[in-house]
Amino acid sequence: MEIIVCIKRVPDTEARIRILEGSPEISLEGVKYVTSPYDEFALEAGIRLKEVHESTTVTVLTLGDDEAQENLRNALALGADQASLLRGSTTMDGLATAKVLANEIDEKKPDMVLLGVKAGDDDQQQVGPMVAALLGYKCATNVTNFKVQGSIVTCQRQIENGTEVIELAQPAVITVTKGEFEPRYPSLKGIMAAKKKPLIIKDVEVPESRLVLTGLEYPPERDGIHMVGEGLDGITELVQLLREEAKVL
């Protein structure tokens, strides 16, 4: 089985995000980067398929700058076989990203494409189903667990307060969320082996974004907290405030 896992390098969740004054731009100076947490689930799912299904190859793919090689190397250390960096600028326009990835995926004609359900930075949650639509692959999103038998993929997909079980035929695009695929840590052996695995770099043209940023602002500040005393004493006051001031009861 040929598997492609798409990952994205994003600022760490803990990172302080600052708006550059007077411009719709974010300052990412000094920010630590990680592989988007959802993509880690997707990668874990891909590596586990390799462990269960013989002669399975996992290729990890990203669109990003040179720095993203670090994230690809990490993926190789975890067990992916080869990596491709599509060197180009990332964009919030999901379809622009999907077109670049789909081009590359179409050349490889994999059986499955795995992605995180969304990226941890722009939270657009678009690229997976868009890649599927562009390539005419079947697609399941928000998947917590799946199994492959022959060319059939059986997925558990999380919906509002429930789970749908969906069967789809390969080639399939699956977007993965938290569930069965808790990511592993790289082993020392894995890290050493990763250095010798192939990492290909290809320059790509990313279509111009059709989603144009016009401004950035911080979320409105709350009025500050109203502490209602310690322990049981404050409860009556709290209920009164929720009812009369906040008007939510």
Partner: peptide
Amino acid sequence: TAMGKDLAPRVTAGLDTVMAT
């Protein structure tokens, strides 16, 4: 929702247009 987020990107790709989530 789970349905809207599954569906809207497919429609966006089908129409070759742009989407905000």
